[in-house]
Amino acid sequence: MPEPTVEERLWNTWVEAAAAKRPPGLEKFRWTQYGDHGPGHELLGTPRRILELGFGTGRHLAFLLDAGFDAWGVDLSPSGVTLVRDRYPESPPERFSCADARDFLRAAGESFDAVYSVFGAVWFTDPGELLPLVHRRLAPGGVLVFSQPPPIPGCYGPQGMFKGGFAGEPMFLVRYDYTADAWRGMLGRAGFVGVRAEVLEAPTPGDIGTLLVRAVRPGLEAGAC
């Protein structure tokens, strides 16, 4: 087995720490970082087949599977995928795939009616590469929905994040931070329509909000939301 890349090792560390803080299970599907706050999985419409990009601890994907959806997911972390499969033994293990989201989308043989990301791969993948791949893999009328923190004012585009301080091996991730207006433009250029992008206010005034974006691949009428 090949040695994990720096990026894989970083995500291995993250998912192990996150899983230790969060017990298995999820009563509700939420897009924000504040638990029972904001809309739920109804933003996906009524899809036949769903794909999550970057499932992390697996709780949203497990929720959809438990609710009877034909849901699939992909994540870059090898140990994270193993951990999630162990946490949700009632879910078929093949629903939790280990791969780069771009590679998975290129290789996927079937289309999806909804693709989503909750603080996941959409935040950490170049949208110039990712959005056309998602568009290609969505069925006509399919939806892309994702959430992530809004950008820090003045800090837009690729933003590097070091892990563990500034000494030793340079381990870092690149995230992609854009305003709601910028996402509308990028999604439109990638062929999406009906783009809605907004920052949801936090439940406590003064706290960080959540950037929530929904877009449709043109075609058949998308499911109600």
Rank of each mutant, 00 (worst) to 15 (best):
S77M: 05
V134P: 01
Y156Q: 10
P151A: 06
C155H: 14
R95L: 00
F166C: 09
T125A: 04
G128M: 11
P151H: 12
P78G: 09
A121P: 00
G128K: 14
R102I: 01
V122Q: 00
T125H: 06
P132H: 00
F112K: 01
A107W: 13
P132Y: 02
L105N: 01
A107H: 11
G157A: 09
A107R: 15
E129S: 08
P92G: 01
F146P: 02
R102W: 05
H135D: 07
D126G: 11
K163W: 15
F124K: 13
F162A: 11
A107S: 13
G157D: 09
G128S: 09
Y88G: 02
S77F: 05
S147K: 13
P89H: 09
L130A: 02
D75V: 06
E90T: 06
L138T: 00
P153A: 12
W123D: 05
E90R: 12
A114N: 06
A114M: 02
R85A: 02
L133P: 03
V122S: 10
D113V: 09
G80C: 10
S77W: 00
F166Q: 12
Y156K: 07
E129F: 03
K163E: 15
R106Q: 10
A139K: 05
R136F: 06
G154I: 03
L133R: 08
F146H: 13
G160Y: 11
F146W: 11
V115H: 03
P127N: 14
E90I: 06
R87A: 12
F104G: 00
D75Q: 08
R136S: 15
V84K: 00
D103M: 10
P140D: 12
P158A: 05
S117P: 09
D86H: 14
K163F: 15
Y88L: 04
E110V: 09
S91Y: 02
G154M: 11
R137G: 02
V118C: 08
G73C: 11
H135F: 14
F96T: 03
A167L: 12
A167H: 13
G157S: 10
C155D: 13
F104I: 05
V115M: 05
G120F: 07
W72G: 00
P151K: 04
F112Y: 15
A108M: 11
C98D: 01
G120A: 09
H135P: 03
A121V: 02
D103F: 06
S97F: 04
D100Y: 01
R87E: 10
D75G: 08
R137N: 00
F119E: 11
L83D: 03
C98H: 15
V122D: 10
G80P: 04
G168M: 04
